[in-house]
Design a protein around this nucleic acid. Sequence first.
DNA 1: GCGACAG
DNA 2: ATCTTGTCGC
Length: 228
Amino acid sequence: MASDLPPHWLHPRDIAEARAAQAEMAARLVAEDDLPARIARLGGADVSNTRFDPAKRVHAALVTLDAASDAPLATATETRRADFPYVPGYLGFREVPALLACWARLTVRPDVILVDGQGMAHPRGLGLACHLGVVLGVPTIGVAKSLLVGEGTPGPEPGDMAPLMWKGHRIGTALRTRRAANPLYVSVGHRVSLATAVAIVLGATRGRRVPAPIRAAHAAANAARLGE
DNA sequence: GCGACAG
DNA sequence: ATCTTGTCGC
């Protein structure tokens, strides 16, 4: 399993090496639909950090929810020392390792994972969601609460959207999921088209700004940090 | 050279 | 990401 993964994804020595690894992963990225026609289970991924922690720990969480009821079907968390610092544009190298550990122990696997971070709406088209998706070979969607690059402002009503543009090309969709709340920035992660990604996110929102799978993952990651 | 900058 | 209560608005 780990044998056919890019050689540098785990511990790049420096930014230049990380960039090269992203280029390798970008070459494997699939931006078209290649997932079940009917999504029965939705996954959520998130990582929380401990402020001023000398051990530099990260607390990752992966959850699987029943797509129709939002009922939790499985949860896995992993706490470990971050082996890579937070550098805008290279978040995957900091968070993916712990998320892989979660995936290994997740008893019920989702059809697609909603990731708290950018997908292709990234300087080199390889945000956290793409990174996780390519390494796992699983469909993923990037759902960010703020921008890394690009611009686009949707109308005020839930469901309103605007193309997320950057340097003359479309990299995602700025989506209003709740009135009077900042938009969400949805982009392709892996094996999902942008249109499908947006439809899935909207379908998991239900009146709240952040879709249920990510809210659940966020709660699980915080529990892991505050608990033991 | 000066900002901007997911989590 | 994290530090933090009440408060304004739909």
